[in-house]
Design a protein around this nucleic acid. Structure first.
Length: 939
RNA sequence: GCUCAAGUGGCGGAAUUGGUAGACGCGCUGGAUUCAAAAUCCAGUUCUUUCGGGAGUGUGGGUUCGAUUCCCACCUUGAGUACCA
């Protein structure tokens, strides 16, 4: 009876689905374990072999934990709102709702073929109104909250109103917009309702404000900082410009310190923690105010080097700084305006690409040094960023290279305030070696002491204080797109109002025209949506709105990361229509125990999700403030592109080995890797039939063959190097695919896909199958296992358990191969060995395990079988291995009885050496025995 | 520029409280089986050698009886980040 994987796999996949084998209960006597994958964007291309890598790893771990007696939650769903889904729809000219539905069906079909143990009864889709009802609800909770710095947590907004009506806002220590004015109790009480709302908006955790945003004209939407890479959009690589727009924002900056602190409590990869730390960008220093001469204005700067305050010889403002127009002298006005205009025109990318050109203009105005009262010229320059700190710097050319270059370029003086340092060539920025000079009360102090003293003196004269600054900006939450969650918001007199939970979800209307607009008008703003507004108004108006007028709804939609910021909690109780999840469910599952996904989400999804979790924790909606205890980044599986070489201007293609003759006339073209065989050969006829452009292709062959070049790069449609898992499943089976993806290398590491080696693991499965059969018959008996059988089994149990706990799935595949080879050689057919072995293999190759399990006479799924226990007695026998070094040159280990003393060992070693040398006909060497420790206990 | 990670056969990769480097798989070589092929099985496969050995985990040093493993310097590759005051 041969191993018919296609039949077996279809059979057991159907069995699992019918019996709900992997359905998790929200209460159980067993301990809980929550294994989560980052849910996929259902893009049009379907899954390639790289996608399932992380899913296979998490599935192995989930199945292992079930064997270990845990109640395992292992759900899956789709991140189906957002730019990628919509861009795909636009490209194919279909409605995103349709393409999304089709793509999800395709994903599901592919996922089912791999035999994952997902609990599909808990599936979520972020674009499903049943799901985004709660995304909208959480948005409302954020709107109804403010951040109390004293309590260091978010609190309900009505508590803030109470504070205002009792104390005004002079005593409160809350996170708010910069432009909040102070008011007394009386003033607060005199405010109109509208004015009160306006003030509260400046404190809410999600707020509406006119801010400078990243506008991407090509995509027709604004983007958050993490959606921009190297100055262009992450999706599509389109240019991004700065633009002032009124947008919803999330006050994530309130959580900067806690997001940093939380990193020490979670088991996440260090590089990922590093990049979040970097993104949050905490820096400690001081804020210093400089009075502007002949003006009633002050310039606030942030500096990490208050110790160098006496080295200030000029100040630089960002061109966008609001004071620039106020303080510029009439003589400088024309030049300043020209400069501002020139910088505004430059895109983010141009500005970044060109960091070497030094540019700036003098405003004509002077500030006053806080201590020396000397005049300090005020310049503007685009090396100062409007978005960081206060958008202004005190320039200390002797201590900062950029200030130094700027000063040199414009001939500004460079006073030296460092003791014994030459600054004629470059600035001196080494904090550790700093000794301050020419600085009044700071003379002779080192960096640390000077820093403290400077802050103290600044505070004394009221012109500065110690300050911690963060790079992290509030996140823009509006998108001028169709395919996203509508906001649960309407406007009265221009002020945003929330729509009650009872009227949620506010469903996305079905529209004909959903394309983004060039001007930034949301697609929902078009005439065909008016009916939606009217309809929604009727629903939400109740008594508080005059039914005769239509109130405008918020027409932007939420960004892609909205739904993914809490979906892991929704899985715990995904079908609940009353609440986002029940208290029982969230208190039972609490948090994700193991989260597996790509590292590309480090400063996007994973940061936003931690932010929302902390917020939900503050408002007592969830019981823990970090949502994932342990996280693993699976490495990317890369494609191996195939390259053909065309002679420029011709239709002739030369084989790889001949291309050098043509030197510069060669053009490289990527062709479909699925046409290439294992020896990198391409059949010319395949290429001619592949695409019309190759129809008349001529070939220059080497040894009668056309050999292609190979290049390892990201798997992508545009390189024609995508390999689908479906083909592999058909040819070798899902179990082979699962084993092979694990066998390729360490989980965290990037590795190229190469089908060549899959015959190895496939051969293992065939051997495994044969081990349980005797010719055509099932061959497992109740025979007594031999000592060797037991030894093989128990060392396999030990190794596999260690491997799984350490997530080294690649080495346990080797362990299985060794075990099967050994047991085959031992002609083992004992049930006492082969039954536990099956449980070990089952997480990796579940289909074959189920089939053999049922042949062993079991009526239930192997998924619930107990993981076998490692018994040390089967490994320890009568000897140990002792490593021995001597003469300082040689070393080896000797296997010796357990009960030998140190002296006996030395004697034995010398006897061994003598025998060895005499056998070789040589004089024995002088032996110095260093008793080594016991390395290993082996059988 | 800065930060982090990694360099081991023809290839993917094993080997951690420092103890026989190259597990396991691919590929390759030879053999068995077969009319033949596929499949399967067995043996071999780091390099070098005058068959005694010798060299060997990116390079150069160091610690140690002993280093792929620990320390220092350098080289290379990959990833992230970048005018952050």
């Amino acid at each position: 009876m041969s191993y018919d994987f296609n039949t077996i796999e279809a059979k057991w996949q159907a069995y699992w689905a019918e019996n709900g084998t992997f359905k998790a209960e929200n209460n159980s006597d067993k301990p809980k374990y929550y294994v989560l994958d980052m849910f996929p964007y259902p893009s049009g291309a379907g899954l390639h072999v790289g996608h399932p890598l992380g899913y296979i790893a998490s599935d192995i771990y989930a199945r292992y934990k079930r064997h270990k007696g845990f109640n395992v939650l292992h759900p899956q769903g789709y991140d189906s709102f957002g730019l990628p889904a919509e861009q795909y729809a636009i490209q194919t000219g279909q409605h995103p709702a349709i393409t999304t539905k089709e793509n999800i069906a395709r994903y599901r079909e592919q996922l089912d073929k791999i035999g994952f143990s997902f609990d599909w009864s808990r599936e979520v889709k972020t674009s499903d109104p049943k799901f985004y009802k709660w995304t909208q609800w959480i948005f409302i909770q954020l709107f109804d909250s403010w951040y109390d710095n004293d309590a260091d947590k978010a609190r309900a907004i009505n508590e803030l109103e109470e504070v205002f009506s009792n104390e005004g806002n002079t005593t409160i220590n809350a996170v708010c917009d910069e432009d909040v004015v102070t008011f007394s109790v009386e003033e607060w009480n005199d405010f109109s309702s509208l004015e009160k709302q306006e003030v509260l908006l400046k404190y809410r955790l999600t707020y509406l404000a006119e801010t400078e945003v990243n506008w991407c004209p090509k995509l027709g939407t604004v983007l958050a900082n993490d959606e921009i890479v190297n100055g262009v959009s992450e999706r599509g690589g389109h240019p991004v410009i700065r633009k002032k727009m009124t947008q919803w924002s999330m006050r994530i900056s309130a959580y900067a310190q806690r997001l940093l602190d939380g990193l020490t409590t979670i088991d996440w990869p260090q590089p990922l923690k590093d990049s979040q730390t970097n993104w949050i960008g905490r820096s400690q220093g001081a804020s210093v105010t400089f009075n502007v001469k002949d003006h009633d204005e002050v310039i606030e700067v942030f500096t990490t080097r208050p110790d160098t305050i006496f080295g200030v010889s000029f100040m630089t403002l960002a061109p966008e700084h609001e004071l620039v127009t106020k303080i510029t002298t009439p003589e400088q006005k024309a030049e300043i305006e020209a400069y501002i205009e020139a910088t505004a025109k430059r895109s983010e990318r141009d500005r970044m690409a060109d960091v070497k050109t030094i540019s700036g203009v003098f405003t004509g105005a002077y500030a006053e040094h806080p201590f020396t009262k000397e005049p300090v010229p005020i310049w503007i320059g685009d090396y100062v960023l409007a978005g960081y700190g206060t958008g202004a710097v005190m320039a200390v050319p002797c201590g900062d290279q950029r200030d130094y270059d700027f000063a040199k370029h414009f001939g500004i003086e460079i006073p030296n305030i460092f003791d014994g340092v030459d600054i004629s060539e470059e600035a001196f920025a080494d904090k550790e070696k700093t000794i301050i000079a020419n600085s009044d009360f700071l003379d002779g102090l080192n960096y640390k002491k000077a820093m403290k003293r400077a802050i103290y003196e600044l505070e004394k004269i009221g012109q500065g204080k110690g300050k911690i600054n963060y790079r992290l900006r509030d996140a823009v939450f509006s998108r001028q797109r169709y395919w996203g969650e509508p906001f649960p918001v309407y406007y009265v007199d221009g002020m945003p109002q929330m729509i009650d939970l009872q009227h949620l979800p506010i469903e996305l209307p079905e529209v004909e025209k959903y394309l983004p607009t060039a001007t930034g008008e949301p697609p929902l703003g078009r005439a065909d949506v008016w009916a939606w507004c009217t309809e929604t108004n009727k629903v939400v108006s109740n008594e508080k709105i005059d039914n005769t007028s239509v109130f405008p709804l918020e027409l932007n939609t939420m960004p892609g990361w909205a739904g993914s910021s809490y979906y892991f909690n929704r899985y715990m109780d995904p079908n609940n229509d009353e609440v986002v999840f029940s208290k029982e469910a969230i208190n039972y599952w609490k948090e994700v125990d193991l989260y597996i996904g790509g590292s590309e989400h480090a400063t996007g999804h994973l940061l936003y999700a931690r932010f929302w979790q902390k917020f939900l924790f503050d408002r007592e909606i969830v019981p823990v403030d970090e949502f994932a205890k342990k996280l693993i980044n699976q490495g990317m599986i890369l494609g191996t592109s195939a390259i053909v070489y065309r002679i420029s201007g011709t239709n002739t293609y030369v084989s790889k080995g001949l291309k050098d003759q043509y030197k510069n006339q060669i053009e490289e073209l990527r062709v479909d890797v699925n046409m290439i065989n294992a020896s990198d050969e391409l059949d010319p006829n395949d290429l001619r039939n592949w695409q019309p452009q190759f129809e008349d292709a001529e070939f220059e062959l080497e040894d009668g063959k056309y050999i292609v070049g190979r290049e390892v790069e990201k798997m992508s449609k545009r390189w024609f190097n995508v390999v689908n898992p479906d083909g592999v499943c058909e040819q070798y089976g899902a179990d082979s695919l699962r084993l092979y993806e694990m066998f390729l290398g360490p989980l965290e590491q990037a590795k190229p896909w190469n089908t060549a080696g899959i015959t190895g693991v496939h051969g293992f499965l065939k051997k495994l199958w044969k081990l349980y059969h005797n010719g055509e018959e099932f061959g497992v008996t109740d025979a007594e296992p031999s000592k060797d059988n037991l030894k093989t089994l128990h060392k396999t149990i030990k190794k596999v358990e260690e491997d799984i706990e350490n997530f080294s799935f690649n080495t346990s595949v080797s362990t299985f191969m060794i075990a099967v080879n050994e047991l085959t050689a031992q002609k083992c057919n004992a049930r006492a060995i082969l039954e536990p072995l099956l449980v070990l293999v089952s997480p990796y190759a579940p289909h074959i395990a189920e089939e053999l399990w049922s042949k062993l006479g079991h009526n239930d799924s192997i998924a619930t079988a107990a993981f076998p226990i490692f018994e040390e007695k089967h490994l320890v026998e009568s000897s140990k291995q002792y490593p021995i070094s001597f003469n300082g040159k040689m070393r080896f280990t000797m296997e010796l009885p357990l009960d030998m003393s140190k002296e006996d060992i030395e004697a034995a070693v010398m006897a061994h050496e003598k025998t060895q040398q005499q056998l070789a006909g040589r004089e024995p060497k002088k032996v110095i025995v260093v008793p080594g420790k016991i390395v290993n206990i082996v059988g």
